[in-house]
């Protein structure tokens, strides 16, 4: 299997605080990969390092076989255009309409005409069930709609790799399930590789193929495998507990 992301001996943190110490894992092509763990174990921090927003203390992250750590700023930006990231609150640019948000990467990085861009916006909005919301401002959207609009923007350049930070946080169960279906459809229809940070057990079991569980105490990966497998057969009792309903209250 082709490895889309390869993480080697990655040590990350802030200042003198080490959040994760020498972690190793990889993500395969067309896989839905979950990053799980309790509050404050470093899920968001890891995601920021995977997407090249921060440089680690040590180690390397390779995306599509290219290091996002050991490269020039220009090269990093070029690599960043090949994947999409959706943020917890959608991170739409508040001064632009939804359509302008989606148009931004297209205007910046392609030579497409205004007509073509319009077509793409329409297509992407349809994909996330937001037909007709193009002229709306982000402040006029609900939380779930903002996330979906953020996803439409992340997909503007047709990336083959998507990152999600807590896609279901703050959503009602029905909206959250819809988003899960959308994520699954992206992978099934387009073969997109998807990395999800989540603590929502429903999503974990319904969408992920494989997960890693981060543990604050060991500053590393406590378990690696399919969520069902880990819940039923992990040697680590904390992992089993976390993934069973009883563990819910320990998550954020």
């Amino acid at each position: 299997m082709e490895k889309v992301i390869k993480v080697q001996d990655l040590t990350i943190g802030y200042g003198t605080l080490t959040v994760l110490d020498k972690v190793n894992f990889h993500v395969e092509k067309s896989e839905i990969f979950g990053i799980l763990g309790g509050s404050g174990c470093g899920k968001s921090t890891l995601l920021k390092h995977l997407t090249g927003l921060y440089l680690p203390f040590e180690g390397d992250v390779q995306i599509f076989g290219q290091s996002i750590i050991n490269c020039e700023d220009d090269e990093r930006r070029t690599l960043m255009r090949k994947f999409g990231v959706t943020y917890q609150g959608g991170a739409l640019f508040g001064s632009m309409t939804v359509a302008e948000n989606i148009a931004l990467p297209l205007q910046e990085f392609t030579d497409k005409s205004a007509e073509e861009i319009k077509q793409i916006i329409k297509e992407k909005l349809a994909m996330v069930d937001l037909e007709g919301c193009g002229p709306m401002m982000p402040s006029e959207l609900s939380g779930g709609m903002r996330k979906r609009a953020g996803l439409a923007r992340a997909m503007a350049l047709n990336p083959s790799l998507l990152f999600f930070d807590e896609p279901s946080a703050g959503l009602d169960p029905i909206t959250s399930a819809e988003l899960d279906r959308l994520i699954k459809r992206l992978r099934d229809d387009l073969g997109t590789t998807i990395v999800i940070v989540t603590h929502e057990l429903d999503s974990v079991f319904s969408v992920t193929d494989r997960v890693i569980m981060l543990d604050k105490n060991i500053k590393g990966i406590a378990a690696d495998g399919s969520a069902q497998n880990l819940r039923d057969r992990s040697e680590n009792s904390w992992v089993r507990e976390f993934l069973s309903r009883a563990g819910m209250k320990f998550t954020n």
Binding site: R81, Y87, A91, F93, L104, P105
Partner: peptide
């Protein structure tokens, strides 16, 4: 500052836009 809190700055950066 507000853009930073909403992660809009991060979103810009990961789009490959300075």
């Amino acid at each position: 500052g507000t853009m930073k809190i909403n992660e809009e700055i991060s979103a810009l950066a990961t789009m490959g836009i300075e």
